[in-house]
Every structure is written in structure tokens, then in C-alpha cells.
Design a protein around this nucleic acid. Sequence first.
RNA 1: GCGCCCGUAGCUCAGCGGAUAGAGCAGGGGACUUCUAAUCCCAAGGCCGCAGGUUCGAAUCCUGCCGGGCGCACCA
Length: 572
Amino acid sequence: MDLEKLLTDRLAPAFEKVAGLPVDPVVRRSQRADFQSDAALALARRLGRPPRSIAAEVLDRAELGDLCAVAEVSGPGFLNLTVADRALGGLVAALATDPRLGVPVAAEPETVVVDYSGPNVAKEMHVGHLRSTVIGDAAARLLEWLGHRVVRANHLGDWGTPFGMLIEHLADLGEAEAAQELSMGDLDAFYKAARAKFDADEAFRERSRQRVVALQGGDEATLRLWRLLVEQSERYFLAVYELLDVTLTARDFQGESSYNDLLAPVVADLDRAGLLRESDGAACVFPPGFAGRDGEPLPLIVRKSDGGYGYPATDLAAIRHRTGSVGATRLLYVVGLPQRRHFELVYAAAAQAGWLVPPARAEHVGFGSILGSDGRMLRSRSGESVKLVALLEEAVARATWLARERNPDLGEAEAAEVGRAVGIGAIKYADLSSDRHKDYVLDWERMLALDGNTAPYLQYAYSRIRSIFRRAGTAARPDAAISLVEPAERALAIELLGFSGVVAEVARSLDFHQLAAYLYRLAAAFSAFYERCPVLRAGGELRESRLLLCDLTARVLRQGLYLLGIRTPERL
RNA sequence: GCGCCCGUAGCUCAGCGGAUAGAGCAGGGGACUUCUAAUCCCAAGGCCGCAGGUUCGAAUCCUGCCGGGCGCACCA
């Protein structure tokens, strides 16, 4: 049970009695006590009474006897609450017997579509895909764990005009040769070669254009080549996902092309609904409230003047499919912040068309860019975007080297495994531990540091606990009585009880840095505990109590890191 | 021109209506006969971009500036 919520539930009725209307007690952690409630201050004006007197009356009417050792009015009208050790111990003991660590399954499970990663066929995945993939995967893991039905939608860029030149290039190379090149994972070289020919060779350009027509016309031979391209790319992406340790599978690819047959009907429906207007030959929806550069209403172009369909049409078709056929009520789009306006337009149009109506809603889970140490968008020395695999491989190599250096006892295989867990974990944690709306600077030294708010620090805390149990040779007794004698173990207990609250908040906000910050606080509380509270050398009941605290900490760390997509090796 | 995101300690970041603004790193000082010192503890470090306003109370809300980034009709 979440302590903060428990205190809130106890204070709320008292506040309501005093104020005569429902009041949020605004319980939060405090430096002067375990928790504090600030609501009396805000109430003073409305009730025309001194805040201290309100606070005192609330205290008088609240049932806190079994929970709090100290509950007092402080300063201008704060309520300072110190939880009784006995109550704390009881709550922790209850947590220990809960396989879900205090986190309830969603009362009303929904179907959630998480649209993330979305690489482009025949193009290398670069750092730009990293954040979408990592954040989206965390969202999918979290919501799934909470009991929602999660549909992972990997909106593959598998359609559009570039495929003319890509297929022509493939045909030029010969299928066997092309398959060979693509399977080596050198998608960049393939794409660039096609691009170079397209830019330089007029005849090739013309053939490419005809290919696009053939592709869209459903020419079987062309489609076969296209499928080859898609299959090889998907195979490559799956290899990257495995290295990145994300939960996306082959079943989750939902290419743009899969909406092809829906585009015309979508536009027809928009027309029927009277939402369509022609502008410069293009079929547009003009959702109210959007203005462009010139102050004119901003269009969402659902059919281009050449008759072709672009992104907006596909996105609308996807929404209609997801709310209609899939039955989703929450649509998450884990896409960079620059595309914000695009999605606002799409959501507005979908709402007008009746495809996105409550309880269904769409959220743009936007994020900033990854910057290099120079504070600019991360680029390779040659000025190109950095290959994602290169980044991941470097992370693993650095972490493996660190693991070998730090712990020579590790065998080759284990060092490699630890290197992967730590390296990939470090990359993901660096991404998830700061506010996703901001750009962040990729810095190897910092993300792989063993102290500070990093994945290795958390993994280290976990491995220290596992080490204790290896030495103990036994598991913790889940029914052990909890006794909290040292301040450090009290502090640890309070942190443990905060897990469910944080998880609930993050499920709503998808601000994973709050979960990261919580896990860091927990790990830091554990490290302080570890320093001052001997476990194995403690006697009898104290030992059992501490073993249980250790076990709980390990479980929360493991589960929390799992939700972020980060592994927890048994030792580092 | 309009819109969005962002300016907090030397650096990287939390905090987004409440009590003296918090972490980590770097720099200073301590702690290994004791469960991994890949750790812990202590001290130091801030006109919270600037100026107004709202409020009993503003880093937090509003307005206007300044600075950085990104968008703004047929590219996905």
C-alpha cells in the first residue's frame, strides 16, 4: 500500500468535515518529518480562519493514531506527520507477501496501442529511432504489467516514392546480390547507392518513377521485389531490437502499406462527413484553430494534388483502424516533438470525423533530440546521423571493458553478459532518466558512471543484494517480522512503500524519469542502509527483518528496471 | 510573422503554488582487519534568463522582453 495515499485517505475526511467540502490534503514527503500536508494553508482564505487553527482542527478529527507516531501543526499551518515504526513495519510486511509489490492491476483495463520505433525499410536505424524505441517499449511494458491490453504498433516506413529507386537499385544489383548486401545489415550503403544513382542518372530516375507506378498499381513482379526489401529490413530491425533488448517482435510490424486499401475509403468518409475541401488541387481537412505561416487556416492534406496519399491519410486510417477494429481507447504516439503539430492536426481531424471520440483519446508522447558533447544534434564525424547499432555496440564494448577491469573474477561469458546488460541499460537509462521533452546530451562517461543517477549504480545496488543472499545461502522469510531500529532502515522502508504511487503516476504521465528518480532514491536509500546495517552479522530476528528488506528492495529494483527495459545481472 | 519546447550550482539534471531551492558529477575533507570502497559520510557551492503582475506565499501561475532549439500546405 502506498503510504502517501494511505495518509491522504485518512486526512481527506477530516479536511472535508472542517472545510465542509472535499479537499485534497496534498500529502507529500517532507524534510522535517516523514510527510507533510499543505492543504490548511490554501484553505485559510476560503474559510476565513487562521491556517494553524484549521490544521489543528483537522488533526483533532483525523484518525491517525495507529499510523502516526507524531502528527503536529508546524510553521504557518503545515501538518507534519511521522509514521509510527510499528505501522511502517506492518506495511512493509504486507508488501513482502504481495507479488505485485503493492501495485494493483488496473481496475478498468483498456486496449492501448503504442505506436513506436517506426524505422524505414532499407534505411539504417539511427539515434533518432533510439528514443522512440526505448520510451515506447517502456510504455508498453508498464501498461502491460498494469493489466492493460497493449498492442505494439511498429509503424514501419515501407511505402512511398523512395521505393521506386530502391526497387530499381535492387533489380540492378540482382536479387541474390542485393539480398546478400541487405542481410549484412549495411542498409545505409544500399540506400545511398540508390540515392546516388537517382541523383546522377536521368534514365534511372525515369525507371524509378515508373517503378512507383508499378508498385502502386500492384504489379506482381514489383511487389515481389518490394517484399524482399521489406523482409530483409525487418530481419535486420529485429536483430537491432534483440541487441537493444526491447519487446518488439515480428508480429508488431504494421507497415504503412497495410493501410493502403483503407486510404480511399477514409477520404471518402471525410468527404461524406462534409469535412473535405479542395485547395490547390489537394483534398484537405481544415481542423479549426490551426494557422500556418501566413495566418491562413492550416490544412491537413489527405490527398495530394497528384492523387497520391501522404502521411496524414495513413495516420487517419490508422486511427480509424485502431479505435474501430482494434477497439483501442488509448492511442500513444511515441514520436519526436517536432511532429507535434502534425499529430495535433491529425487528432483534430480524426475527432471531427468521429474516429477519435471519448473515451478514446490519442496522446503524442513527444521527446527531444539526442545531442553530442558539443550541444548540437548528434552526428558522426562526417556529419551524418549516427548508426544506432554503432552506438549500441560501443556501449556494450565500453561496459564489457569496465566489467572486466572492475571484476576480474567474471568469466568471459559472464563478462560479456554483464557488459550487455550494463551497456544497453546505461543507454536506456540515460534516455529515460531525464524529462523526455528536453534534449539530452549523450555522454559515455556519465551514463556509465558507477555512482550518480545511472543504470550501473542501480544494477550495482541490485547485485549487492543478490550477493548477500548468495552468502546467506537462504532466501528471505516472507513472513519475517520487520523491525526498524536504524534511521537508514526506516528510510528504506518508506521508499519501498512509495513504489505503487510512482507507478500509478507514470502510467498516466508517461514521464519515466519519475520512475527512474524513484529507483535511484531507493537504491541510494539501500546503499546507505547497506553501509550502516549489517545483515548477515545481525542476530536472529533483526537478521530476518533485514533480509526481508533486502529482498523487497531487490524485487522493486528488478521490477522497476524491468519496466524501463533494463536487466539486472546477479553480479557485476 | 505565428506556434511549440527549453533557459535552475562550474557541468549534467530534479523540483512546476507552500517552510532555509534539491541530487549527481567535477573540486575540498573524511571512512576499507567487517555482507563487492563499482560504495558511504561531511563541508562548500544558487539575483531559479530579465522585468512587471496575481497571491498570505512564485523557480513554479499570467503578461512582456532577452537568449537557445524546432516547426509552420502536397517529404515521409
